[in-house]
């Protein structure tokens, strides 16, 4: 029996009049993955998410969630998804508690009280805060409430649009810890974020959208291979002049009185052979950051 993928998108497209918001998007997200969906504002991330939830209708292609068509079987789809919108759309005159209860009743699934209590504790939303009207909440508290409503029915797939937006560092950490816990329990997470350092830490794969098109789809490890590492060789005394070509995959990008700056692709063995006999004091290898790899895709360079 074929695996029922949490998300399978095939040639999905969305037009608003003459504006093409999304074009030919195809991707798969596997069970237990934390998938990072990246792109500049207006790239089509939220459009994709709203298409998956059947809040808007595609003009081309289709998407499936756990084998259910997002259009034809949208009720089944939405039964399996927890959704955190990019901007928490609460009605200001409701209390947090009223909102969570309403969404529980509308969702048609009983929420496990112990699980909700754990979420409320993790996100530091005590009962006295939940008893207040949302109009009195800070932006961060609204986001925490939005997180609780997304997670509270413990769905197998979570779709999170900018989950750490407007949260303080402690709460950001709480979100990522929860995502990691859910992943360990076999849940799948599809998230959009602008914070690439966090994406790099928690995601297993990323896709980059630019102007409605998928321009990059790779695992974090594959991404690292796309970009060279930076190697700094520090000498105990004055650095000898670097040779024009050290070894295949190694390129000198600069030198200082006591150091060489190199760009390395592939194994470092040939470099170590070259350095044998030289007065090397230190060797620093820096892995490329996700920003360095992904941001050029945002702008259309690669």
């Amino acid at each position: 029996m074929p695996e029922l993928l949490p998300i399978a998108i095939d040639n999905l497209g969305k037009r608003y009049g003459r504006a093409q918001a999304l074009a030919g998007l195809s991707l798969e997200v596997h069970e237990g993955e934390v998938f990072g969906f990246l792109g500049l504002n207006g790239a089509g991330k939220t459009t994709t998410i709203r298409l998956l939830l059947d809040l808007i209708r595609p003009t081309a292609g289709n998407a499936r969630i756990f084998g259910h068509d997002c259009r034809a079987a949208s009720l089944e789809v939405r039964r399996l998804v927890g959704y955190l919108p990019g901007e928490p759309p609460f009605l200001a005159d409701m209390t947090g508690e009223q909102l969570l209860r309403l969404l529980e009743r509308v969702g048609g699934r009983r929420v496990d009280a112990a699980w909700r209590a754990e979420l409320v504790e993790r996100f530091d939303l005590p009962a006295r805060h939940l008893a207040r009207r949302v109009r009195d909440y800070s932006t961060g508290m609204k986001r925490k409430l939005a997180l609780v409503q997304a997670f509270q029915h413990d769905p197998p797939l979570l779709i999170l649009d900018e989950p750490t937006e407007s949260l303080d560092p402690v709460m950001q950490e709480a979100v990522w810890a929860l995502v990691a816990d859910l992943r360990a329990r076999g849940r799948t997470v599809f998230l959009s974020s602008h914070v690439l350092s966090e994406v790099e830490r928690v995601c297993t794969r990323v896709g980059v959208l630019r102007e409605g098109r998928l321009v990059l789809l790779a695992s974090i490890d594959e991404l690292r291979e796309l970009a060279p590492r930076t190697v700094v060789v520090r000498f105990a005394s004055e650095a000898p002049p670097p040779p024009p070509e050290i070894a295949p995959g190694l390129k000198v990008i600069g030198s200082a009185p006591a150091a060489w700056n190199l760009e390395a692709r592939g194994p470092l063995g040939p470099l170590l052979t070259r350095l044998a006999g030289l007065d090397v004091a230190d060797l620093e290898v820096r892995e490329p950051r996700l920003e360095e790899i992904v941001v050029p895709y945002y702008r259309g360079a690669p």
Partner: peptide, 14 residues
Amino acid sequence: EHRFNDLLLARPLP
């Protein structure tokens, strides 16, 4: 208008 539907209709609500 207030996108409250994004919360309501993200659930299995016809």
